[in-house]
């Protein structure tokens, strides 16, 4: 088993997910099954290949430095689960 219960918990903690107990067991099994399948790609030699990140050879796609978004923030608030005057609200966090 590549992904143990412990490493499952570590990943879940990292990506901030909670699971129901039965979900957890099924998922650990599923994940290991998938990882096993993925590892079948290892029979292909890729030593001389560069990792591909982009489809096209685009480069230097820029915008000019112009501040023109004066009203873009309007209405974005309305989707917030909790807000106070102009702020978004989260539970208290102290010490950065």
């Amino acid at each position: 088993m590549k992904i143990s219960k412990e490493s499952f918990h570590n990943i879940a903690d990292m990506v901030k997910l909670s699971f129901k107990e039965e979900e957890k067991l099924k998922l650990i099994k599923d994940l290991n099954h998938t990882v096993e399948f993925i590892e079948t790609m290892n029979d292909m030699n890729t030593d001389s290949q560069e990792p591909m990140s982009y489809i096209h050879n685009l480069k230097n796609v820029f915008r000019e430095d112009v501040a023109s978004n004066a009203k873009a923030g309007q209405g974005l608030h309305e989707n917030a689960p909790e807000s106070m005057s102009d702020y978004y609200v989260v539970p208290p966090i102290f010490h950065d």
Binding site: E64, D65, A67, G73, H77, S85, D86, Y87
Partner: peptide
């Protein structure tokens, strides 16, 4: 294209991109 001005009204310099709204995409400032 939001302004970088310091000390403005909270969240007034924000847009779907810098607030991380779904589907918004970044464009790099030259």
């Amino acid at each position: 294209a939001c302004s970088t001005k310091f000390g403005e009204k909270p969240n007034s310099n924000s847009c779907p991109i810098c607030i991380g709204m779904p589907g918004a995409m970044p464009i790099l400032n030259k």
